[in-house]
Computed example of a mutant assay.
Amino acid sequence: MTVSDLSPMVAGSVRMTRWFTLAHGVWAYRADVAVYLGAVVALLVALALHSPPTPWWQTSGLAAAGLLGWTLVEYGLHRFVLHGMAPFRHWHAAHHAMPTALIYTPTVLSAGLFALLVFLPVMHWGGVWPASAWTLGMLVGYLGFTVTHHATHHWRARAGWLRRRKAWHARHHHLHRGCYGVTSGFWDRVFGSADVR
């Protein structure tokens, strides 16, 4: 299936303008992963080499909290934004229609949102080092989500964690609701969206 095979609304959601598209080539897709991997490494190096004014355990705790926070953001974005709000639900419908297409949020947009909604508010509240640690955790979570989501649609898994994630996500694609967590089913169980039929 190609973009032109989709309904006009879904096709228009994938290719909205000449400069803004959700369907990308393989190199742009890989570049997105490389950008976030680079950001994670840069934040790790910055936190390791330039000792923050906070103890290492506090910095590590903020990064861990950011990672755990990502799991809730991932669930909330998928359930309430990508399946609930226009125009995002139309964009996400393109992914459901073509699950193996390289459809994702453009890197410029997602990076801008991380800066605006994660790094800057935490920096305003607590300074550069807490913002760097919290953002590091969130970016590790986002990178894990990106790789896991790609793997659920493109990689083979005969056993283990990835096979369970693939089955979970396939159930979501089949039902178009429930099983919103990609990297974890924890929040689906907490909010009652794990056992939908």
Results as ranks from 00 to 15, higher is better:
Asp195Pro: 03
Pro130Lys: 13
His90Cys: 14
Leu143Phe: 12
Ala94Gly: 13
Thr148Leu: 14
Ala93Ser: 10
Trp187Asn: 00
Leu117Ser: 09
Met1Trp: 07
Ala115Thr: 14
Pro52His: 07
Arg165Thr: 09
Arg197Leu: 15
Leu49Lys: 03
Ser60Trp: 12
Trp125Asn: 05
Leu175Ser: 02
Arg197Gly: 09
Val190Ser: 03
His169Gly: 04
His169Asp: 02
Met123Glu: 11
Ile103Met: 11
Ala23Gly: 10
Ala86Ile: 11
Trp161Thr: 06
Ser4Pro: 02
Tyr180Pro: 00
Val147Ile: 13
His78Pro: 00
Thr54Arg: 13
Gln58Ala: 10
Thr183Ile: 11
Leu43Lys: 01
Ala46Gln: 10
Ala133Asp: 03
Gly160Leu: 14
Leu44Tyr: 06
Ala48Ser: 15
Asp5His: 06
Gly12Arg: 03
Val118Leu: 13
Ser60Asp: 05
Glu74Ser: 07
Met138Gln: 07
His78Gly: 01
Trp57Thr: 10
Met123His: 09
Val182Asp: 00
His124Ser: 12
Tyr29Gly: 05
Ala93Tyr: 02
Val128Gln: 10
Ala46Trp: 14
Arg189Thr: 01
Arg79Phe: 06
His154Val: 13
Met138Pro: 00
Ala31Phe: 13
Val190Ala: 06
Phe80Val: 05
Trp91Cys: 09
His95Tyr: 07
Met1Gln: 11
Ala194Arg: 00
Ser51Pro: 11
His92Gln: 06
Gly185Trp: 00
Phe88Cys: 07
His92Ser: 08
Phe119Asn: 03
Leu68Ile: 13
Val196Met: 07
Arg177Ser: 09
Leu68Tyr: 06
Ala46Lys: 10
Val118Glu: 00
Gly61Phe: 08
Pro8Arg: 03
Phe119Ser: 03
Asp188Arg: 01
Ser184Leu: 07
Trp91Tyr: 13
Ser110Lys: 07
His90Thr: 11
Ala93Arg: 08
Ala64Ser: 05
Pro52Cys: 14
His176Val: 15
Trp129Arg: 04
Leu117Met: 14
Ala28Cys: 12
Tyr29Ser: 07
Thr105Val: 15
Trp187Phe: 15
Thr146Ser: 15
Val196Trp: 02
Tyr36Asp: 06
Ser184Trp: 03
Arg15Phe: 12
Ala11Leu: 15
